[in-house]
Design a protein around this nucleic acid. Sequence first.
DNA 1: CATCCGCGTTAACCCAGGTTAATGCGCCCT
DNA 2: AGGGCGCATTAACCTGGGTTAACGCGGATG
Lengths: 164, 164
Amino acid sequence: MRFDAGEHIFRQGDEDRSVYVLQTGLLKAYYLSDEGKENIKSFIQPGELIGSLAAAYFKEYCSFSVVCLEPSVTVELDFDVLYAATRDDLEMASAMVEHLLNFSMKKERREREFLTESAEERYRMLIDRSPELFDKVTQKDIARYLGITPVALSRIRKRNASRK
Amino acid sequence: MRFDAGEHIFRQGDEDRSVYVLQTGLLKAYYLSDEGKENIKSFIQPGELIGSLAAAYFKEYCSFSVVCLEPSVTVELDFDVLYAATRDDLEMASAMVEHLLNFSMKKERREREFLTESAEERYRMLIDRSPELFDKVTQKDIARYLGITPVALSRIRKRNASRK
DNA sequence: CATCCGCGTTAACCCAGGTTAATGCGCCCT
DNA sequence: AGGGCGCATTAACCTGGGTTAACGCGGATG
């Protein structure tokens, strides 16, 4: 499936029960609060996989939206088919375990960062870990990913003007 | 394996490559910062499973410690054996997928709460979701789990004096 | 070319939570 | 019983980030 920049793959509240593998492009997954504030769950880069686990597994509504930041190409997989496959194909199950282990560790790291680091430290770690992001994504989105406002990020950048 | 309250199952920095299933008791998993500050990753209740995925999978050091808050009984499983089993036993692989899906969703929810909610809202949600914890765990530990100081939690409780 | 709009920056003011320290309480220990 | 220790509370003060608003800018659009 091909998408233009700005197009949504699915929206918060949808009943989408698919999983998408990103081939090329860049996606952002975000939560929209009742008051209309956006908080960014993650950026998705080629090779990564995105979909609302909870929505698919518990047959609920998606708790977040996914939109393309660049023109993107994805492959859509039906969660139920995928899940059924893990129940009777060892290859699939192993691959799924592999993927989920990696996914869990990523989530765990982010949880840890929120728990133990300040916004400023999280900013510095993000620069170290994913410098490419800073070329592709607006500062507003970086801020919303770090859990702060664009104004706060601008201040942090000023404080850290020396490094990048 | 039996443990007294206060005993550690493993410590940050250990090379423990096991996974533990809690039969009875109550555990807490926590990070200790360089400056000696404690931040609580999670409380583990009977039926749940704990272990440092990253340590086991990447053969690294554990990034957190696990200590018993009550006398506890656990079953120890070797991660490598477990992982190998998922590679050639469909039953095991399916169970592992099941478990990891649930684990991922829990982490995802916590990530979301840190990203989108204030400390006060997180406190209220915790009361709703796990009221039992408040009887078993000190307020200090609840605060460290919420990502705030005991002093801040005391203030929040005062503001919310009406509800519990 | 002029207009518009969204982004990043900066300033001023506000507030939640951190820090430090004092107090009082309950619990464990011998 | 007495001493000691860790926990919860409260107060005073500090600080990082939120909010609002003004400004300049660059890119898109007519």
